[in-house]
Write a protein that binds this DNA or RNA. Sequence first.
DNA 1: ATGAAAGCGCTAACAG
DNA 2: CTGTTAGCGCTTTCAT
Lengths: 341, 341
Amino acid sequence: MERLTIKDIARMAGVSPTVVSFVINNKPGVSSSTRKKVIEIIKETNFRPSLSSRRLILKKSFNISIVVRKGASPFNNLFYFEIAQGLLEKSKEYGYNIVFTDIPALGDKFEFPEIIKQKDTDGVIFFQDTESYILNEIENLGIPCVVIDAHPDNDAYSYVMADYEKAAYTATMHLIENGHTDIAFITSCTSPNFYTQVFSGFKKALDGKGISIPSSWIQIDANDERNEESAYECMERILSTKNKPTAVFCAVDMYAASAIKCAKAHGYRVPEDISFVGIDDIILSRYIEPALTTIRIDKKLMGSLAMEMIIKKIDGQHVENVIVASDNLIVRDSVRNLRPE
Amino acid sequence: MERLTIKDIARMAGVSPTVVSFVINNKPGVSSSTRKKVIEIIKETNFRPSLSSRRLILKKSFNISIVVRKGASPFNNLFYFEIAQGLLEKSKEYGYNIVFTDIPALGDKFEFPEIIKQKDTDGVIFFQDTESYILNEIENLGIPCVVIDAHPDNDAYSYVMADYEKAAYTATMHLIENGHTDIAFITSCTSPNFYTQVFSGFKKALDGKGISIPSSWIQIDANDERNEESAYECMERILSTKNKPTAVFCAVDMYAASAIKCAKAHGYRVPEDISFVGIDDIILSRYIEPALTTIRIDKKLMGSLAMEMIIKKIDGQHVENVIVASDNLIVRDSVRNLRPE
DNA sequence: ATGAAAGCGCTAACAG
DNA sequence: CTGTTAGCGCTTTCAT
């Protein structure tokens, strides 16, 4: 079965291909009667114009690449997927394909995927922190890009990120509102921007209530590569101080999972002896024991916002970076209320 | 900066576009000296032929769509991601784009994504169970497809799936080898094929040792939609029988997670009082307490096999369905050894 | 071994 | 308002 072309439709409708093209593209300059006729035939025949031809003449690929980091942790992968769903939904409205690619893990020999080298993409969306030389190269190729959930040092690139300061503030305040004043803090500091945000949110909450804590309760050596062990060690250090905190705020749910494991291993009950809050609301958080109270980061929203941004950029419009509100507290079982009822 | 074309390269090399096309496509009929010259210039200029043109003339999209179910559980998403990585790796070798799409959740009004309607895809890969009328429609459109990790009722469609019978057998044998003979079983039966496989693996292990169990220990009403509650209820039913099993085999890790939760809630210690094994090795399994002993299903392998299949089908070759070996036991902490040391 | 030319299916001047 | 026509950048037949 031969594929229909615009010519066939034109013949069937008794008009020229131009006219058909016009109605397909919703352009003015066609009498409403012919337009109606053409539309009817298109519907009847279930005709779709060849994307390949349009790509060629329009010099547009109708592809948007999403690039993820090879060898990212499974938990990050889960994020990716949530983000991807946001992207996908939006992409449909605009007629773009979402094509999935990856780049080597941090530190490995870097190379762009073929789709980018061939410029078979109208825009690219990076997931999470991306070295700026990569972003530079993309820019050099003249391809618009936006990065999702990174913590950029400057505003040279478009991004959509979560408001981690607000998240940290909300998490810490929840502890305070439950009567905690002896609050420890576990975070990473590999991304300066992330660290700054999360720390200042934490501090703001404490300062607002005039709470002070020993510096040994601030542990900044968790990191994503050795997630589990690093956060575990942070918790051990906190537990080895003379005064024990009644609660610990973890910058990321994964750290909380490890820290809780550590606390239990040392004979503490959670939340009876020590309470925990995290940020992210990863799927795991519902399954650890006790289920983790946390701040939900809306990855799907971030995905659809990023999609809107990249499309604007492709269309040559100016875009503002966006920071999505991140104060959605999910109360589960990891925080004990110290207040008298 | 204007994009280079095959014409430019031809001019620079002092040959005709035809020749350039020939060398790009590795076709014979070019003297090795001119070939060398052309190759050199291509390298120098970093030239890549326009994919759009090739698509048009070759009538090939160089796209392979992967279609996932909208609203699938986050756990499935994680599977998807692993599969996607397998696909991705392979796709690079063949120069296809992997484009990500979704279809409505089971039961919702069905519609194909645009990329398929437009036939802007050379093949499609479905993730997990897919209604056969959908597969039929794709076939009608003349687009090759393969489905991954489904449990097809017949062999009309190409698929790659895990050997769940073997997995079930291996899991159950592990229990038996640890001295268990009172073994309960939690599964779903919504997919007849899956149920049959898993049940016969379980039975085979039991029969081999002449073990018999009360039928009330066989609970088949777990299901993926209400994962958590359904498996929990299955476990409650098992616990309400007069004789308690010393172990339970769960057809899927998720069921094990819920069943363990249930056992603990009823005051049983795991694995001291009751042992558990699952199948899948989802990420969660390492994090529940105790960490779950399970059979690993290699989703990434399934992805890359599916990619090889779809490419063969696109090239008009015959393909055999593949069943990937699934007896990789991952021993963790959820099984107690009843045997004297 | 190389080149000229046609054409894939569409869009967009331009002419009528 | 409608039609003619010239490409987009490649592949491929057919001459040479």
